[in-house]
Design a protein around this nucleic acid. Structure first.
Length: 523
DNA sequence: ATAGGGTTAG
């Protein structure tokens, strides 16, 4: 592996290339600093950013405006000193960049002489990290020495974040350690980034090692650092230790207090191992501590109850939320509905669904399909739900919602169970024009229903209608049997002939008047 | 200036 340019031992940086001049014109502060509100920022982004990404291109496919169009911020943004806003703006521009420009980004930078000042590059590195482009950021970083730029603490912090994003935690650790060695004082946030990356991978040993380094250099962890550790402990199943950590934070120094994230993390840990009651106790405790539980906190409870087999308790949670002015979101409802469906509480799921709609939520297509299938299946036994199934189906169709192949099978079967045979056939046909093949014996089922109703003429036309697909052997058996029983032997014989012509050999044979199966020679 | 919560899916 080649020595990394991040080696902090005073590298000999070459003098700046004459090509690369400091773009000092980038930040003319002619006006008083003005705070750009997020809304305003979004407005600017919509109007100008998109234009940037769709610039006309020269023959090499480069944006004609090059990187200066990306890096030069509009005066509203430049004017103010808030770095977060500048970086976020930059990140947004990078995000909307066409893939081609992203690949070429460093080359473009070099061409345009945009490897400017250290602070400019630091902004760019941070923005690239925010825009989830760690590879480009690391390329930019690699180029810094050849442009006479000496990385500082901020540079290295961004590089650490980038390595974390790439999941190269060994590189991140190495750089962090060399920062410490060279007294570049990484900030809590930088340490926490690495701690979190280890925790997310479940490498708790390494995470605690980083905590040890923090301790050694006198960098005080924040509640966020502990929250990452708690989440990590829960993730690897060490819930008890996570809980202890919460207790220790409560007992420990007054400067650090558990926040709602801490409680939520431990609650989630309990819920994931089927200890929802304890999670609920913690929720109460958080309230007593004056913390405001939020949607995520409550959603954790839905998840716990649903996983544990107590999905009905979710309604209680829903009530609590509404009492406490915490609006449920679509995750609250989907968790609950899926939990109810999973435990066979179909009526309750329908109720939750109605409440969800009543709250003004758009229900995802996928969930509608799931609900529809569940409703159909249960309605075959609990007939009063047939109507609900039809309604759900109708609503989906009228909303232009895609009913998937399997759901179609269910609704068709449901329609024929409810003796809505014409509709069943119509939908079967529709399903097939949509390119779904009937996986269930729905045609046979429909045919059987029609026979029961005595609509035998209709049956024949169904069997012959090629838009409905080739009838299965099952379907032929049903019809032949029916004709036999009604004494319409000629019809039975005709149907049997049809089947043979299509290469299907039904087990049911046409009979004669005395109920004898006809010999092959008689067919 | 850079760090932290949640869900479901025949």
């Amino acid at each position: 592996m080649p020595p990394h340019p991040s080696s902090l031992s005073s590298p000999a940086y070459p003098p700046p290339s004459p090509l690369l001049h400091l773009p000092s014109q980038r930040r003319p502060c002619s006006f008083r600093s003005a705070i750009v509100s997020p809304q305003h920022l979004r407005k600017i982004q919509r109007s100008k950013l998109v234009a940037t990404s769709s610039q006309s291109r020269d023959s090499r496919g480069y944006s004609v405006d090059g990187t200066s169009a990306i890096l030069t911020l509009p005066s509203e943004v430049q004017e103010q000193s808030n770095c977060t806003v500048r970086v976020r703006y930059l990140a947004e521009r990078i995000r909307v960049l066409p893939a081609r420009d992203r690949v070429e980004f460093v080359g473009l930078l070099r061409r345009d002489g945009q490897m400017g000042s250290l602070s400019g590059v630091n902004d760019l590195l941070t923005a690239l990290a925010v825009a989830r482009e760690p590879d480009i950021a690391l390329q930019v970083f690699d180029e810094m020495p050849s442009h006479g730029l000496v990385p500082d603490a901020w540079t290295f912090s961004s590089v650490i974040v980038c390595h974390c994003l790439k999941n190269s935690l060994d590189d991140a650790t190495r750089i962090l350690e060399s920062m410490v060695k060279n007294e570049l004082h990484p900030s809590v946030a930088t340490f926490t980034t690495l701690v979190n990356s280890f925790c997310r991978k479940g490498e708790m040993q390494k995470a605690f090692e980083v905590l040890g380094v923090m301790n050694k250099v006198g960098c005080e962890p924040t509640i966020q650092t502990y929250n990452c550790l708690i989440k990590g402990l829960c993730y690897v199943g060490r819930v008890e230790e996570a809980y202890e950590m919460l207790e220790n934070i409560k007992k420990g120094s007054i400067s650090i207090k558990p926040d709602i994230y801490t409680y939520t993390a431990v609650m989630d840990g309990f819920c994931k191992v089927g200890r929802s009651p304890e999670a609920m106790e913690l929720l109460d405790e958080a309230l007593e501590a004056g913390l405001a539980p939020n949607v995520v906190t409550y959603n954790t409870m839905f998840n716990g109850y649903c996983k544990e087999g107590n999905p009905m308790k979710g309604f209680g949670v829903l009530k609590l939320m509404k009492e406490r002015d915490c609006a449920p979101d679509h995750i609250s409802y989907s968790t609950l509905i899926h939990g109810l469906l999973k435990w066979g509480k179909i009526r309750a799921a329908l109720r939750a669904y109605k409440e969800m709609v009543g709250d003004g939520f758009e229900v995802e297509e996928r969930m509608l399909n799931t609900l529809l299938r569940a409703l159909c299946k249960i309605s075959w036994k609990e007939r009063d739900l047939l109507e609900d199934a039809y309604q759900m189906f109708e609503k989906m169709r009228s909303r232009g919602c895609v009913v998937d192949g399997s759901s179609y099978g269910f609704i068709i079967q449901t329609l024929s169970v409810g003796n809505r045979n014409e509709e069943a056939l119509l939908n079967r046909e529709h399903m097939m024009t949509m390119g779904h093949s009937p996986k269930m014996i729905s045609l046979a089922r429909v045919v059987r229903a029609l026979c029961r109703e005595g609509k035998l003429d209709k049956v024949l036309s169904v069997l012959m209608d090629e838009r409905l697909g080739q009838p299965s052997k099952e379907a032929y058996n049903v019809v032949i049997n029916e004709f036999n029983q009604q004494g319409r032997w000629l019809c039975a014989r005709n149907v049997y002939g049809m089947a043979l012509k299509q290469g299907v050999v039904p087990e049911k044979k046409p009979e004669d008047a005395r109920g004898n199966v006809l010999a092959n020679s008689q067919l």
